[in-house]
C-alpha cells in the first residue's frame, strides 16, 4: 500500500494489521480493472444520499495538467508527475526513493445513478476532490403504507 500506517511501540497491532491486509488481498474479489488498492494517486471514496465524493491524493501537481474524464459511468483521473531525482551524471546520491514519478491513471466505476452533467472538481492542498451528483429519481423515498 502506498501510505503505510505505523503503530509505534506496538508490535502486536502491527502484526494484526499485516494479517488484515493479507486477508484482504486473498478474499477480495478482483475487479476486471485490476486490484482496486494501491497505485497513485491514492483514493478515498464516500457516499451521501445526493452525491458520490471522490478524493484523489495527488500532491505537487499543477491542476491544469490533470485530466479528469467521465465516460459511460467510468471516471478516469490521469496525468504526470515529474521526477525530482537528479540526472545520472550529477554529483549527487539518492538515499531514499519512495515517491511516485511518471505518468499515472486511475479509474473509478461510478454507481448507475451518477449524473455525468453534475460534476465538480477542486484541487486543494494536493488533493483532487471530485463530487458527482446523483440523479433525483434514484434518491431513497419513503413509501407510505395506506
Amino acid at each position: 500500500m502506498f501510505y503505510r500506517s505505523v503503530f509505534p511501540r506496538d508490535l502486536l497491532s502491527e502484526l494484526d494489521r499485516m494479517q488484515r491486509e493479507m486477508q484482504q488481498a486473498y478474499e477480495f474479489s478482483p475487479s476486471i480493472r485490476g486490484l482496486a488498492r494501491g497505485g497513485f494517486p491514492a483514493m478515498n471514496v464516500g457516499n451521501t444520499p445526493h452525491s458520490v465524493e471522490i478524493y484523489a491524493f495527488a500532491p505537487g501537481i499543477d491542476p491544469a495538467t490533470i485530466d479528469v474524464q467521465l465516460e459511460k459511468g467510468v471516471l478516469t483521473i490521469a496525468g504526470e508527475r515529474a521526477s525530482v531525482l537528479p540526472p545520472r551524471e550529477a554529483n549527487a546520491t539518492v538515499h531514499i526513493e519512495e515517491r511516485f514519478a511518471g505518468r499515472f491513471r486511475r479509474v473509478v466505476t461510478l454507481p448507475d445513478d451518477a449524473d455525468p452533467n453534475a460534476v465538480s472538481a477542486k484541487y486543494r492542498d494536493g488533493v483532487l476532490h471530485i463530487s458527482v451528483q446523483r440523479r433525483q429519481a434514484a434518491q431513497p423515498r419513503r413509501i407510505s403504507i395506506e
Binding site: R4, S5, P8, L85, P86, A92, V94, H95, I96, E98
Partner: peptide
C-alpha cells in the same frame, strides 16, 4: 499515536 508514513525522496549533494 497512529499516523500514516508519508513517502519521501532523500537526495544528497556536496
Amino acid at each position: 499515536d497512529m499516523a500514516l508514513l508519508p513517502p519521501v525522496d532523500v537526495i544528497e549533494d556536496a
